[in-house]
Amino acid sequence: MLTEIEYQLVNHYQHEMPMSPTPFADIAEQLDIDEAKVISVLKSLTERGIVSRVGPVFQHKKVGASTLVAMSIPENKLQTVADIVSSYAEVNHNYERDDDINLWFVVVAPTQQNIQQVLADIEKQTGFPVINLPMEQDFHIDLGFAL
């Protein structure tokens, strides 16, 4: 599914990118290929949806606020409610899960207050209550996703 170069990129650069003004040239040097190749492969991975983006994962406790939210939605209303939820810029990772509480999403915003506003608005727009499950402790996993 992945070419050798794609595999190398995805497996080695999830956690540490070269910190220089020319990170893709540095990666190219490390992998002994052309910079143009690194760039074209990354663009292709992005277009195919395998790479979501290249950049930072923020520590949400220090940068802004975030929470996990759960809702229990009747099956015949799930798509409609999910679409409303997904329409918020603050919402990501919106999933159906196989449980009575079947809609799960993450809300990120600059402040707790913004989050409360978004949640109140979602309740109003959908007519269903939310269960707000903010992180209380992060058991740190340092690695990216190992292939």
């Binding site: 990129l9 650069y13 949806g49 395998i50 930072p56 923020f58 520590q59 220090k62």
Partner: peptide, 24 residues
């Protein structure tokens, strides 16, 4: 950016993948 990493504003910096598209 290096400072933001060192001071824990950024927890990692690199390629961010989607699991499903990787076959998971």
């Amino acid at each position: 950016i290096q400072w933001l990493k060192d001071n824990d504003y950024i927890r990692r910096y690199g390629i961010i993948v989607r699991h499903k598209e990787l076959g998971f």
